[in-house]
Amino acid sequence: MQVQSSSGRPREFDDAYVIEAAMDIFWTNGYDGTSTQELCERTGLGKSSLYNAFGSKQNLYQQALEHYQELGIQAQAQILKAPGTAPERLRALLQWGVDRDLGSSRGRGCMALFAVLNRTGKDPKVAEINRIYVDRLEQILCHVIAVGQRNAEVPPAPSALELARGFLGSYYGLRVLGQSMPDRAFLRDALEGIVARFEIPLIK
């Protein structure tokens, strides 16, 4: 991307670097808690350059959110496409969420989830971005569960779509609990309770 410097000469900026830096500060502070001055300091851009390049703080936030979600989809898809039974892969995804919430990102939580809670009602574009993200994750989950049903790893009813949506509700509920109840033993029990709904009990 080129923007005009104060002298009128075009200047090159690394869009990916700016969006990555903006994502980090939005993720930490939220949209309302992030000032334009902080964005300038973190990205290395002057205020006029920032607005010339991205239009507004809101537009930059939207691009940062899309970047965060793309990274998240890639990571979660890799887990869900790994070897193992469907319940094992679902457990691995839940464990990934717990580890993120209790690990180095402790206190920041899930940027996508907080965008839903804090920005969806205020920004239709954010609502659209979040809807696309959930749809993509739902499609991956639905495929994993449908294959699990065909392999007799997951109960045959309800439908794969209903189970995928039920899992999504439980998954994001667990992510919220990771912020309010940062206790690994508590979250492990909640995790196992979720997975139990997707396992076929062994016949003794």
Rank of each mutant, 00 (worst) to 15 (best):
F114Q: 13
A77H: 09
H67Q: 11
K81W: 02
E41L: 11
L39G: 02
S170I: 03
V126D: 06
Y31F: 15
C40G: 15
A152W: 05
G173P: 00
N52M: 11
L45V: 04
Q95K: 10
S7I: 07
E162S: 09
E128C: 05
E38D: 15
G193E: 11
L45A: 05
Q74E: 12
L174S: 05
V3R: 04
G178M: 00
R131W: 07
I73N: 03
Y61C: 06
A64V: 01
D183Y: 03
D183K: 02
L187N: 01
A16Y: 02
R89A: 06
L93E: 04
I79Q: 02
Q62M: 03
I132W: 05
H67R: 14
T28D: 11
D99G: 04
I194N: 00
R42N: 08
R108D: 05
S6R: 11
D15E: 15
L60V: 07
R131E: 10
A146L: 07
L60I: 10
H143I: 09
Y17A: 15
R100M: 14
D32V: 02
E162R: 06
N118W: 08
F186I: 15
Q2G: 00
D15C: 04
V98Q: 01
V147H: 07
E66R: 11
T85C: 08
P83R: 07
V98W: 01
I194W: 03
S56V: 07
I19C: 08
V126N: 03
K204P: 13
L65D: 02
V98E: 03
S35K: 13
Q95P: 00
I145T: 04
Q2E: 11
Q78D: 14
L137F: 15
Q58D: 13
A115V: 05
G8L: 12
F54W: 07
A152Y: 08
D189Y: 08
L113G: 06
R89L: 08
D15Q: 15
T120L: 12
A86F: 02
E70C: 03
D135A: 14
N151F: 12
L174Q: 06
Q37K: 13
D14S: 13
M1E: 07
F26W: 02
Q74S: 12
L93Q: 11
T85E: 04
A185P: 00
C142L: 10
K81V: 00
L174W: 01
Q76S: 08
Q58P: 01
L80H: 02
F167G: 01
V116W: 13
R106A: 12
N130W: 00
E128I: 05
Y68R: 09
A196L: 13
R188A: 10
L137S: 03
A16H: 13
A164Y: 01
G97K: 00
S35P: 11
G84L: 10
P10S: 10
S170V: 05
Q74M: 07
G169R: 03
G44E: 08
S104T: 09
E192N: 13
Y51N: 10
Y68V: 03
